[in-house]
Nucleic acid binder design. Structure first.
Lengths: 107, 107
DNA sequence: TATATATGCAACTATTTGGTTTCGCAAATA
DNA sequence: TATTTGCGAAACCAAATAGTTGCATATATA
């Protein structure tokens, strides 16, 4: 069972949950009200998000408040980092390769 | 069949492919050499990446060079944008909520 | 021309996924 | 105390996924 942050954000419902609780901590019932699927389905999503440590829980009596572990989102940012300098220098790698190949073939 | 960029990067093999061809355009065979799975498996991943428009092809005789569509990676960055101000202000939403609840209960 | 190479595509399979219904438990409330 | 409420977990199911093997096709090359 793969359980990483990229797997976690692959599902649109989970992305929506992340966005929801980023603003304010919420209980599973409150979260589920924003979707068409059952509370149990949302509960399963929350479990996955918890296993990935994107989400943290805080028990308040019989209610559990879920909120975003913002730090974890930085991991996505960190992975993107390697592409940032590529898209900042507006540099087409394929063009370069093909240009080189044409140069080679002329030799 | 979901086919968006988040689905595309969910698979670790596909993330590795993306990283590989970000540096230099490559043919399916050359890409497959870097993995344990078969060329056909890589080919399927490339199809998914192509459908998501993360990857572009350039036919060169019987070879097909795949390279990264860097612009598409910005979409992930764009989604992350909404969390950036949260993680920049070191602000714990859950703490705030719970503090408010305690204040409420004292009234 | 015959053969080797590069590639995509189809069919099949095992596993994972996202959802459901049903249940049990603990906390709140009547 | 009896009932309601909030929640997670288990059992089950259909669909999607990632992989395989086995083709077909087009381009190189001997």
């Amino acid at each position: 069972m793969r359980r990483d942050i990229f797997q976690a954000i692959a599902d649109p419902t989970r992305r929506a949950i992340i966005t929801l609780i980023a603003i304010q901590a919420m209980t599973p019932n409150a979260i589920a009200e924003n979707f068409n699927s059952t509370r149990q389905a949302i509960s399963k999503h929350l479990r996955i998000l918890t296993e990935c440590e994107i989400v943290k829980q805080e028990q308040q009596g019989r209610e559990i408040y879920y909120s975003l572990e913002v730090e974890k989102m930085k991991e996505i940012d960190k992975w993107l980092e390697q592409f940032r300098n590529i898209w900042e220098t507006n540099f087409n790698q394929l063009d370069v390769l093909l240009a080189n190949m044409k140069k080679q073939s002329k030799k």
